[in-house]
Computed example of a mutant assay.
Amino acid sequence: MTEPVEIHQLRYAVATADAKSFSRAAAVLNVKQITLSRRVQQLEDRLCVKLFDRSTRGAEITENGRPFIEQARRIVTDVDNLRTTARNVSYGQQGRIAVGYCSPIMAGNLRYAISEYLTKFRDVQFDGIEAGLEKLFHGLHSHVVDVAVAPIGLEEDGIASRRLWSERLYAVFPVDHALAKKEQIYWQDLRREIFVVSAGGLGPIFGNLIAARLTEQGKRPNIILQDTSLESVLSMISAKRYISIATEASQGVAWTDLRFQEIYDPTGPARLEYALYWRENNDNPALQNFFSVIEKPYPC
Rank of each mutant, 00 (worst) to 15 (best):
A148S: 15
V196M: 06
G218K: 02
E183L: 03
N222S: 14
A13T: 01
F137N: 08
F206P: 02
G201C: 02
V124L: 03
I223M: 03
G139C: 11
D127I: 15
I223P: 02
E167K: 07
Y186F: 10
K32T: 02
Y12A: 09
W187K: 02
L133N: 05
S250L: 04
E156R: 14
S90V: 06
T267H: 14
T62C: 09
N284G: 07
R57T: 15
W165V: 15
L179P: 07
F22D: 00
A249N: 06
E280H: 12
F291T: 09
E231F: 15
G158K: 02
V149A: 10
S161H: 15
I205P: 00
R24P: 00
S55G: 14
C102D: 12
V124N: 11
N222M: 12
I210R: 02
I210G: 01
H177P: 09
Y298M: 13
N88P: 00
L258Y: 05
S23E: 07
Y186A: 04
K182V: 02
A275R: 07
Y274T: 12
G203M: 00
T77W: 03
G201V: 06
V99P: 07
G153N: 13
V28D: 07
K219D: 00
P174T: 14
V31D: 04
A160I: 01
R66A: 15
G207H: 03
P297T: 14
K20A: 05
F68M: 13
E134L: 13
R111T: 01
A246W: 02
R11H: 08
L179T: 12
